[in-house]
Amino acid sequence: MSQQPINIQRLSQPVQMPDEIATFSPKVEAEIDRHLAKYPVMRSAILPLMFIVQRERGYLDPPGVSYLAKRLNLRITDIWEVATFYSMLHLKPIGKYHIQVCKTLSCKLLGSDKITQLCVKKLGIKVGEMTADGRFSLSEVECLGSCGTAPMFQINFDYHENLTAEKVDQILESLA
């Protein structure tokens, strides 16, 4: 017979090969434990933990995702569905400095377009791209609650408000 059953032994192996699983320092593990302790249901800690993994590993890379699934006792799809819903979580590499220019109405009224253009020129990338050296990513984002101090951008978690051309120059200069 040409179609002999293939080696049945292989079936005892897992259908999905386990990915490499990220590991963290005891300090980070302790931080994770502190978050887990806040909730009666482990899954609730998914967002705080994702931020930690993202901070430690740059983005939610496959070992990081496997770690989350294992740590929270969830399926890998659970991690995926949540991570892709929220705009601050990244399953793809992101620049060391993520420049997020607010483009919503109040900022727009006060010239957010120009801020974006400045960044585009300065960094030599388009919106949504990352510089070749992986230092900067540029995004346009929706309202960041800084409308009274428009225009503004956020670099990683830092707010930079009441932006002017000079200020943008200065800030980017200081990070370059």
Partner: peptide, 8 residues
């Protein structure tokens, strides 16, 4: 306790 959203 504080809890963080993630952009939504």
């Amino acid at each position: 306790y504080t809890h963080t959203g993630a952009g939504a």
